[in-house]
Every structure is written in C-alpha cells, then in structure tokens.
C-alpha cells in the first residue's frame, strides 16, 4: 500500500522532501512506518525521535489523516492505503 508522509524541520532535512510517497506492505502499522524510516535514513533519523540513552521514542504526536496518535502508545495503529501521515516534531514548550 502507498502512504504519503508529510515532514517538518529536521525530519524534512533528513528525508529531503516536504512530502514523501512510501510503499509499505499491506497490513502495516504505525510502528512499521517508523521502522522503515529508521532503516532507510539510519541513525540520523533515529536521533530525531528517540532518546539515545533509553532507546525509547520521546513523546510526540503523529497525525494520520489529521487524527492524532501518540508516539509513546499508538505504534500498533493500522495504516491504510492512501493515508497521509504527519510526524509532528518532538519539541517541548516554546
């Protein structure tokens, strides 16, 4: 299935595009997308989303068709063909 990834900031720098079309196997879940991105873009991508001491994803939101899911809890969320996924940059405060 095909999904569209929308990117911001550091993640946009790493993937090199505001939007990216990604092919994932049928039945893929949100966690599979992050695994694909880490395999494709390597440590540099991993450093944007994971605490490098604990290895855990830091808290941030991921929008799937404008519905928010949590990096810390929702990696089993199924994806579907045509989904638009937006990774909100992990950042506190402001």
């Amino acid at each position: 299935m095909t999904i569209t990834l929308k990117t911001f900031a550091n993640i946009r720098d790493i993937v090199g595009a505001r939007e990216l079309t990604i092919e994932l196997p049928a039945g893929a879940r949100l966690g599979d997308l992050f695994e694909y991105l880490t395999q494709t873009f390597g440590k540099n991508f991993d450093r944007q989303i994971r605490n490098q001491i604990t290895g855990e994803m830091v808290p941030f939101l991921i929008l799937v068709n404008d519905v928010a899911f949590r990096s810390t809890q929702d990696m089993e969320q199924p994806l579907h063909h045509g989904d638009v996924v937006t990774i909100m940059i992990p950042f506190d405060g402001g």
């Binding site: 550091n10 450093r47 944007q48 605490n51 490098q52 830091v58 992990p90 950042f91």
Partner: peptide, 12 residues
C-alpha cells in the same frame, strides 16, 4: 541524548 536539545533546538 534527547532529540529536543540535541537536534531540534540547535537546528531551528
């Protein structure tokens, strides 16, 4: 180790 202080704040 934290993305906010090691990657995102320094860049943007």
């Amino acid at each position: 180790a934290h993305p906010a202080t090691s990657e995102i704040l320094p860049r943007y």
